[in-house]
Amino acid sequence: MVDGENLGSALRRWRDRLSPLDVGLPVRARRRTAGLRREELADLAGLSVDYVVRLEQGRATTPSAQVVATLARALQLSPPERDHAYRLAGLLPPADGVVSHLVPAGVQRMLARLVDLPVGVFAADWTLLTWTPSWAALIGDPAGLPVEQRNLVRAVFGRGHAGLSSWPVRHADAGMPAALVSDLREALARYPRDAGLTALIEEVGRTSPEFRRLCREGTVGRHVSARKTIEHPVVGDVTCDCDVLTAPGSDVRLVLYSAAAGSPDAEKLEFLRVTGGRPAGDPSTPAAARPATS
């Protein structure tokens, strides 16, 4: 601290304190370090290993706010640590009174232990922040989507492709859009200074008559649960209970899909978990999930 800290040294310190188990990775024998490897951090943050190396060595000195945000999520930084990372990168930290896209460390550790379930983590503006492999297997992998398209409000009320889901989804609860609008109205009351939230509401309001109608009705509440049927191309229809949980002390929401134990839908979820949602004949499907040959 006497010599001054830079972003590279801070990243190394934060990386060294994390166990692979904290981020849902297996601990293999003969690790030379107890913390995360650079390769593991790069994978978690969606960055190249070379870029992470250059950041830590001080050769990449102007990361974008989006890069710092993804690193903060991957490293499970607290809000003060996240703000410190922004300042070390020469950036202004996110302002108070705006929607946070930081996934709390406790939620990330919980998510690492819920890896077998389809779980997505959303911000208060319903932007998808992170998800389990089982979520990608059931819904379709959103990793290839631009960040602005990973938003449930745009997916429900927008035009064209559903965005968050690669396959058609039928909602048994016809009140889900109204609940989503009500939840969004409540978020706007909590974050009136968030320009991104205001822009999202104005954008969807321009393009969706249904959204405008629901806004005029003026109901206030939170989107908490639903029953959905996903038309999966590999296993057919999968009907799940979809529950929305809010982490205490945080505005992030965990959306969990589940089915009754022993039911055909639970068996389909387990098949998708094992295969990653790929057909049984796909060469990349794990051998344990492929049909036996004579």
Score class of each variant (00 low, 15 high):
Tyr191Ser: 01
Ala280Arg: 14
Ala280Ile: 06
Gly158Thr: 01
Arg193Val: 06
Leu47His: 06
Gly8His: 03
Val220Asp: 01
Ser263Glu: 12
Thr239Tyr: 10
Val121Phe: 06
Arg150Ile: 01
Ala199Gln: 10
Trp14Thr: 05
Pro26Lys: 14
Gln66Glu: 11
Trp126Val: 02
Glu217Gln: 13
Ala137Cys: 12
Gly8Pro: 05
Tyr191Gly: 04
Pro104Met: 03
Trp167Ile: 08
Ala60Gln: 14
Val244Ser: 04
Val52Arg: 05
Gly144Ile: 00
Arg113Glu: 15
Gln108Glu: 10
Arg37Glu: 09
Arg216Pro: 00
Ala124His: 06
Ala266Val: 07
Glu148Thr: 04
Arg193Lys: 14
Ala287Arg: 13
Ala72Thr: 03
Leu200Cys: 01
Asp173Pro: 13
Ser294Tyr: 12
Leu102Tyr: 00
Leu71Ile: 00
Phe157Val: 07
Thr207Ser: 10
Leu18Ala: 06
Thr246His: 08
Glu210Leu: 15
Gly277Met: 08
Arg159Trp: 00
Val235Gln: 08
Arg13Trp: 00
Trp131Val: 01
Pro168Glu: 03
Val252Asn: 03
Ser165Met: 11
Ala105Glu: 05
Asp243His: 14
Leu269Arg: 14
Leu11Gln: 01
Glu270Cys: 11
Leu145Val: 01
Tyr51Leu: 15
Arg30Pro: 03
Val103Ile: 09
Gly106Lys: 12
Arg154Leu: 00
Asp265Thr: 02
